[in-house]
């Protein structure tokens, strides 16, 4: 499914002294099946944007078209939007509440009116999609598993709604390196298997560089850049000026280029770095 955002503005508490602009004239297009990374500091407006994409917030002005349908129009069914667009919040494990993992994962699809065998199948599929064994985990309490597993169960709760667009707000925040890698690999697998559109927010430039087809850079309520990761990280000075980081491998290759090494511009993955450095010394 494609997403088209046109001149989106959002003002919190308009007309009061504490009025604040969270989004200013944001426009972009995401094509069906793309893997999109969103970058920006806390307070740059990215969380506000995500909440608009599945109808939790209404824009002050502007439009959001999902597959050509305007979801900001009056009378749009919220359930329809949530069926299409799944939003995984930051620290999603804080929303777990049921006695068993299976029941918790079933909460979303049940709200969509799915019942019986179809429901069970969806739940099974979602739990397995996040890399947990259904039979082993379905009857466990979601409060008795490890932090990384809780995170996955919470993500399964959204996947079970079969969203065609999956949005994740900092899916690896607070996780240790192993759980971080597991969750990123899992998201990648889901994308490869279902070819759904994935949008994720991350502060980790290595993940942004490795996974995304398209990067949106936000700062102070504005969309500053909408480009491929290579294009974004090619603007080294600009990225640093915006107080953002470059991927480690880009830093290394740029340092080598400055010393006169003949490497391609803006290398963002380690495989390419390895190959090109090796070729020089071959």
């Amino acid at each position: 499914m494609s997403i088209e955002v046109k001149n989106l503005c959002h003002v919190y508490e308009a007309g009061t002294p504490s009025e604040s602009r969270a989004l200013e004239d944001v426009s972009f297009t995401i094509e069906n099946g793309k893997f999109v990374g969103i970058v920006g500091h806390t307070g740059s407006g990215k969380s506000t944007l995500l909440q608009h994409l599945n109808g939790l917030l209404k824009p002050t002005s502007g439009q959001i078209l999902i597959d050509g349908v305007d979801i900001t129009a009056d009378g749009t069914s919220m359930l329809d939007i949530r069926k299409k667009v799944g939003l995984v919040f930051q620290y999603p494990e804080y929303q777990l509440f049921e006695e068993t993992i299976a029941k918790d994962v079933a909460f979303g699809p049940k709200n969509l009116g799915i019942e019986g065998e179809e429901l069970e199948n969806l739940v099974r599929e979602a739990i397995e999609m996040v890399g947990l064994d259904y039979e082993d985990y379905k009857d466990k309490s979601p409060f008795e598993i490890s932090g990384g597993q809780k995170r996955r169960v919470a993500i399964a709760g959204v996947l079970a709604m079969k969203p065609e667009i999956l949005i994740l707000d900092e899916p690896t925040a607070g996780l240790d390196p192993r759980a971080h890698k597991d969750v990123m690999d899992m998201i990648k697998n889901i994308h490869e298997k279902y070819h759904n559109t994935v949008i994720f927010v991350s502060h980790n430039m290595n993940d942004i560089a490795n996974l995304s087809d398209q990067v949106l850079v936000f700062a102070k309520a504005k969309l500053l850049k909408d480009a491929s990761p290579r294009e974004v990280f090619a603007m080294k000075e600009w990225v640093l000026d915006k107080d953002l980081d470059l991927p480690d491998v880009t830093n290394l290759c740029e340092a080598l280029r400055e010393k006169g090494f003949d490497l391609s511009e803006t290398i963002i993955d380690i495989d390419q770095a390895e190959k090109e450095i090796y070729d020089i010394f071959k």
């Binding site: 480690d248 491998v249 290394l252 380690i270 770095a273 390895e274 450095i277 090796y278």
Partner: peptide, 9 residues
């Protein structure tokens, strides 16, 4: 990263 790349090279 430097260790990782060093290993690969």
């Amino acid at each position: 990263l430097a260790v990782e790349l060093g290993d690969r090279l």
